[in-house]
Design a protein around this nucleic acid. Sequence first.
RNA 1: GCCGACGUAGCUCAGUGGUAGAGCAACUGAUUCGUAAUCAGUAGGCCGGGGGUUCAAGUCCCCCCGUCGGCUCCA
Length: 565
Amino acid sequence: MRHSTAHIMAQAVQELYPGTKLGIGPAIENGFYYDFDRLQPFSDAELENIEQRMAQIIKQDLPFRKLEVGKEEAISTFNQKKEAYKLELINELGDTQLSLYQQGDFIDLCRGPHIPSAGKIPAFKLLSVAVAYWRGNENNKMLQRIYGTAQASPAQLKQYLNQLAEAKKRDHRKLGQELDLFSFSPEAGAGLVIYHPKGAILRGIIEDYEKREHIKRGYQPVIGPQLLKLDLWKKSGHYDNYRENMYFTEIEGQKYGIKPMNCLAHMLVYKSKLRSYRELPLRYFELGTVYRHEKSGVLHGLLRVRGFTQDDAHILCTPEQLNAEIVGIIDFVQQVMDTFGFSYTLEISTRPDKSIGSDEDWERATNALINALECKGLAYTINQGDGAFYGPKIDVKLKDAIGRSWQCATIQCDFTLPERFDLCYIGKDGKRHTPVMLHRVILGAMERFIGVLIEHYAGAFPVWLAPVQVKVMSITNEQDDYVHKVANKLLEHDIRVETDTSPEKIGFKIKEARLQKIPYMLIVGAKEKADVTVAVRKRGAGDLGGLEFDVFLQQIKQEINQKVN
RNA sequence: GCCGACGUAGCUCAGUGGUAGAGCAACUGAUUCGUAAUCAGUAGGCCGGGGGUUCAAGUCCCCCCGUCGGCUCCA
C-alpha cells in the first residue's frame, strides 16, 4: 500500500511538474518516499498541490496494471520518457524479463506487488521534503525527496501524526534545556557535551548503578589513559582502518592518538604479566571516555556526539569459554534493559569490506555469536557487512515507550586484536595459547543513552533517576522553618530535595515544580506544621492528601530501592 | 563531508535598507495566599563572527562558526 502511494505521488508530481525525472520510490517504515530530479526543491505550497492531485487520482480509483516486458521493450519505454535513472537500473538488472506497473498514463519500473487500484488507499499524508544522493552516493547528483505516510485508516493516520507530534514533544534537546540537564557551546566545539548539575547527577546515578552491576558479575574496573602513542594505534589497525575518525596530537616530537576506543589499554592490562588459563575469563570494565571525529553533518544532540563515555568492557577468555561469556552478556543486557523498561531486538552484523583478520577467524567469531543466540533461543536478523573492522557483532536495538528503536548495546567478537598484540595464556598443556576477546557495551555511550532515556520517559524520570526527587514548599512563609526541617530530614536519607520558600502563591510553586517534572511535591501549611505531616502531591497522580512524614519517607525510600519505573 | 534552511535579550519569537521590540524568566518593592501563572516597577543587546556593497546594513553579497532537516556514517 505504501509503495503504491509512492507511485501515485510520482504520477501526481509528473502531471503537475512535467519534466521532473524519477529516481526510486520505496516503502519505508510507516510510509514511503520518492526521489525526483528537479532543479528547485519542492515548496510547502507545491507539496499541498501534489497532495490534492494525489487525492484526485485516488478518487478516480485507477487500477494498477502489471506489464511483463522484455528488457528491450523496457529500455525503449523509458528511453521515450527520457528517464535516465530508470535506464541505469534496467541496465544493471540481469533479468531479461522485467515487470512494469502502470496506473493511468504513469508507468514505473517496479518489482511489485501493488494493491489492485488507487482507490484502495485509505489515508495518506505528505510529510516533508529532503534531499538525497542518487543511490546514496555522495559523488552522485542530489535528488529531491518527498516523504509521506500512508495508513490503513484515517484514524490510524491521525494516530500516527499524533505520535510524530508526541515524539517532537519528547525531543531530548528541548527537554535537556528546559530541565537544565546539559548544553552545547559553540565556543567549546560542536558535539562536545557540557553537563549541568542536574545532568551530571543523572549521569552519576546511572554510572553508580552500572559499576555495582558490573562488579556483581565479576568485572574488574580498570582505567586507561586518554592518549596512547601513534605506533600502538598502527599496531592495532586503528590507524589504517579508523584514522579519519581519530584526533592526533604531537608533543616533543612524539606522536599520539586520542583514544576513539578503550580496547588498547585493556589489552595492556592483560599483557602486564604472564596469564594462566586458570585466571580466565578476565573481564575488564571501564567508563571510558573516547573522542571520535564525526562528520559535522551527523551530529545530533546527545545521540551523536564527538566526545562520549562508553560503559565498555573487554572480556578475555579461552575459545571454550566464549559461548558462556556471550550468553552472560546477553543476560546482563536483558536485566539492565528491564530496569529501565526497554524491550529490544537483536541483529548480527557480519564482515565489512574494510576489515582485518583471516576468513577462518571471522567465521569462527560469527558462528560463536550465532551459537550463543541460538542457545538462548533468541530471534535475530542478519545485517550483512555491517560488523566492526576487527570482528562481527550482535547489536541490541532497544524499543522505547512510544515504539521507536535505538541502538545502544553491542557485543563484538574478536580473534584478531589479541593476536596482533601477542596476548597469550598458558594452557593446561603448558603451552602458549591466544585468548579470544569480546568487546561489549551495555548502555553504549552514556550520552546517547541519557538522550534516549530523556525521550523514553519524556523527561519525567522515575524517582530513582530523577535529579530532584522531592520539592518541599510552604503555603506561607510562616512554615519556612518546617520546610527546611523536612528537607534536611530527607537529605539525611540521601534523598535529592529542593525547597521553595518564595512568597509566591502555592499554585505558582506547583506550576514551577510541575514544569520541572519533579516526582514528589511536599506542600506544608499551618496544619501540616502543627501535625508534623506533609501534603503529598505526586507527579501524574495529583494531590494525595496528608501523610505522616515518616510514612512518606519509608514509601519513597522503597520506591527508590526498587527502582520503580 | 555534501544539499537546503536558519542564527535578534537567559528562553520563545516579532522586526522586508532609515532611532533594536514583545511575552516569559531575572532583579527591586508590595502581597502571606491551601494544590497549573498576584500586582507594580527596573534592568537586560558586538542582531553568531569576519569581510564587502551602500549616504545608511539586524535586513543585501562573500567567507567562517554553530543549529535544524535530510544524505552518507555511527555508540
